[in-house]
């Protein structure tokens, strides 16, 4: 399978990764190679096979509804790229 510019732009948007105009062909080619690898799956007969999401057949364990976390926003925000007044900051979003 071969990806074109439209697909690369779509994937770029979904994954929020910029692909520069001059990189599109190269990115498309490498992604297409990987999709070729995927196409090996087509021939396999998987009728009636249950999809497997986890290696072990376990069920979800539950946590008691008890507060165990204390405020540590100052510590966490020390490593934030931009924070002020207890808030993480991003460029203005118009809603």
């Amino acid at each position: 399978m071969s990806l074109g510019k439209t697909e690369v732009e779509y994937i770029s948007r979904l994954s929020a990764i910029a692909v520069e105009e001059n990189e599109v062909d190269q990115v498309a080619a490498k992604l297409s190679n990987i999709l070729d690898l995927f196409s090996q799956m087509e021939a396999a007969d998987t009728d009636g096979v249950e999809p497997m999401a986890h290696p072990l057949d376990q069920v979800q364990r539950l946590r008691a509804d008890v507060v165990t976390e204390q405020d540590q926003h100052e510590k966490l925000q020390e490593i934030a790229p931009s924070a002020e007044a207890g808030l993480y900051l991003v460029p203005q979003v118009i809603e």
Binding site: S82, E84, A85, G86, L87, Y88, L89, V90, P91, Q92, V93, E95
Partner: peptide
């Protein structure tokens, strides 16, 4: 929540 106006020209995020 996105908080507008708390910091000028930026949007603040309260989680």
């Amino acid at each position: 929540k996105s908080i507008h106006g708390a910091v000028a020209g930026q949007t603040g995020i309260d989680l």
